[in-house]
Simulated scan of single mutants.
Amino acid sequence: MAARLLKALSVAASLLLAGAPPLAAAEYPDRPLRLIVPFAPGGGTDLVGRIVATSLGKQLGQTVVVENRGGAGTVIGSDAVAKSAPDGYTILLNGGSMAFLSALFKTVPFDVAKDFRRISTVSEQAYVLTVSNTLPVDTVQELVALAKSKPGELTYVSAGIGSATHLESELLWHELGIKLLHIPYKGTAPAVSDLIAGNVKVMYTTLAAASELIKTNKVKGLAVSTAGRSPLFPGMPTIAETVKPGFAQGSTLSLFVPAATPRPVADKLFDATVKALGDRELLEQYKAQALLPVASKSLEEADAQQRAAIARWAELIKSTGIKAE
């Protein structure tokens, strides 16, 4: 009788525990988190990362520490997250490269589709086409004419092979019918120094990364990538206005965690992210950089967005013939 009673109590206890959220998830987070930015400090993604980290930390009640892991077109930083413990304490901030790495490179140390869970989009912004002050062009039309007269000679910089600025640049050159020489860096900040010095001539990057450079006349801004003009630079035309009607590109950044992260932890991160994007301080900082706070509506939508982006870029890379180098 006693043995049967103990067995019944044991089964009941097991059922109760199975229906309860894991203890780790219930207590999450109980220590600081890491936000991995796969670029060198000082660039546009780093800036967004620090803004988001502050607001996300407020919502979670813990410090979110930004850790820069630049190099290899975001592969180094992304791989660090893919191989981290799936406990919600290591988060990745990345953009378009998460959609095209697998299609661009033959060997990547992780499978973007299988090894990551996308939590939510956190920002959207325009790209801007900039050139060194040493380059004798002031419009997109003049840049295109110069590039066509010297195919493969004009240099352009990116935040690294396989980075979003690399692929979006190559897509733009394809659309404009020009060929430029790619000079990759380990992030936007080191690339900017050479652009200002005139050692390289062209940079197609995010508005957040380039706005201060344009405002202080350290580089020339020729056009923005979005369908409409930027409120930061209302006098600057769009690429669609100048040489390519209908052209529109935008840069989005999202948060990712390892795919095996427990759903309750992912839910907490998603809820905190949505609330963080409504934080007044974040909104003011975003506005100053012409950033839009764009959140996914659910984890399911975030996943669907990621799968659609991977499929879109695989087709674009195949049709345009864009190469890693």
Rank of each mutant, 00 (worst) to 15 (best):
P41L: 05
M1C: 07
A210L: 07
V64Q: 02
N199F: 11
A324R: 11
Y286L: 10
G61Y: 11
G152I: 07
E67H: 12
L269M: 03
A324F: 09
T74I: 00
T216F: 00
P234N: 00
D271W: 08
K275P: 13
I76H: 07
Q125F: 02
D87V: 03
A191T: 14
L92P: 03
F256C: 03
R307S: 07
K218R: 15
Q305T: 04
Q249G: 11
L255Q: 02
Q141K: 15
G160F: 14
D79C: 14
L143N: 02
V202P: 05
D115A: 06
R263I: 00
M236H: 07
L47T: 10
R229S: 11
V108K: 09
I36D: 02
Y28D: 00
V122W: 05
T216R: 04
V81T: 02
L207H: 01
D79P: 12
D111H: 10
T121F: 06
F256G: 01
E153C: 05
Q305R: 04
V200A: 03
A227Q: 00
L180V: 06
P293Q: 04
V131K: 07
S55P: 03
A324M: 13
T242A: 06
S55H: 10
S149P: 05
P86D: 09
P258Q: 01
Q141Y: 03
R4E: 15
A304L: 06
E124G: 14
P293F: 01
A145Y: 13
E300A: 00
R50C: 01
E212R: 02
S254P: 11
A208M: 06
A227L: 04
P264M: 09
T134N: 14
S102P: 01
T90W: 02
R307H: 10
T188P: 10
G61K: 07
K275L: 04
V219A: 01
R280M: 10
V108M: 01
L16A: 08
L60W: 10
P190H: 02
Y204W: 10
R34T: 02
P22D: 07
A189Q: 15
T205W: 07
L316P: 06
E315Y: 08
K268G: 08
A309P: 06
S319H: 08
S319T: 15
A24I: 00
S251C: 11
A223K: 06
R229P: 09
E241Y: 04
L277M: 03
G19Q: 08
P245Q: 14
L17N: 09
S55L: 11
K186Q: 15
G187P: 06
E168V: 09
F105V: 05
V140F: 01
D279N: 11
G71M: 14
N94Y: 14
P190Q: 09
S78W: 12
T63E: 06
Q285M: 13
E153N: 08
F100T: 05
I310L: 13
R312C: 03
P109L: 12
F110Q: 10
V52I: 15
V64W: 13
